[in-house]
Each structure stands twice: as C-alpha cells, then as structure tokens.
C-alpha cells in the first residue's frame, strides 16, 4: 500500500475536523437577529423621516432638509456612543444599528474615543478614520468613476 503524501493527509485531516466543527458550532439565531435588525433599523429611519418631515413642514427645501437630517442623525449616533448606549444597542440590533448613518458615526466615535489616551494627534486624530477612511474612500472612488463614465459617454 502506498503511504499518502503528508500534504494530502493533512488536507483530509483538516477537512474532517472542519466538518466536526460545523456540527458542534452553534448557528446564529437568524430569525431573532433579523427581527432585531429590521425593527431597530426601521425605527432609526422612521425617526429620521420624522425630523425630515418636520423640516419640510417648516418650509426648508428638500435637499437641505435631507442634509440637516443626516447631520442630526450623525450627532445622535455620536452622542449615544459617547454616553455608552450605542454599543449596548449594537449587541442586540446587529446590522440594524450598523447600516444606518448613526452606525457610521458610532464607528467613528468608538475608534477615536478608544485611543484618546494615546494622544490627540496620533491617537484620536489618526484612529478616527479607522472605519470612516475605507468607507469614504470606496464611496469617493465609485462616485468619481461613475462621474467619469458620464463625462466619457456624453463627449
């Protein structure tokens, strides 16, 4: 009988182990997570819509009202993170508190605040962009590319 070569043997061993892990490892409670995400995410957006409707009612134009709303929601996200509530919400709501713009504010504040003891320039200043940096980067790149495509198509 040929002895199997060690690399193949290791591969079989790790595959067998992986299937054991998959049997034992608890699956995320999908339904519970989804209900939480839907309700919390929905409520955050509902609150934003309330603010927006109020501003529109005050006669502010639609684009400006939209910007104001975003600023207010970012403020709320930052404030709730500062007083230590947003992370408690995030433990339960998952994507429900990550996807809205308040979650973006949470990621910014959490990263910045955590590194305060390392100083304001390379602590807070550098870390504030840990999550915001990549997020804005990819947003900018896509938007500029789409703009360039439009320039190209219309010329």
């Amino acid at each position: 009988m040929k002895t199997p070569d060690p690399q193949r043997w290791k591969k079989i061993e790790t595959e067998e182990y992986e299937s054991l892990v998959q049997q034992v490892k608890p699956k995320p409670p999908l339904l519970k997570h989804c209900v939480w995400a839907f309700i919390v995410g929905g409520l955050i957006c509902l609150l934003a819509q309330l603010i927006m409707n109020y501003l529109l009612y005050q006669g502010i134009d639609k684009v400006e009202a939209s910007s104001y709303t975003a600023v207010v929601m970012i403020f709320l996200g930052a404030f709730l993170t500062g007083i230590g509530i947003y992370d408690e919400l995030g433990k339960r709501a998952g994507a429900g508190s990550i996807v809205p713009i308040t979650g973006f504010a949470n990621a910014i504040v959490a990263s910045a605040m955590e590194f305060k003891r390392e100083g304001y320039i390379f602590g807070v200043g550098a870390r504030i962009f840990t999550v915001a940096g990549p997020t804005l980067l990819f947003g900018f790149v896509v938007a500029v590319l789409i703009g360039l495509i439009k320039v190209f198509l219309s010329s």
Binding site: H33, C34, W36, A37, F38, I39, V40, G41, G42, L43, I44, C45, L46, A48, Q49, G94, A95, G96, I98, V99, P100
Partner: peptide
C-alpha cells in the same frame, strides 16, 4: 421609511 429602512438593515444582517 420604517419598512424600507428596516429591509435594508435586514439585508445587512
């Protein structure tokens, strides 16, 4: 707003 916002978050989950 609740429905669409909730659905977008649910997709993320």
């Amino acid at each position: 707003a609740f429905l669409i916002g909730g659905l977008l978050c649910l997709l993320g989950q």
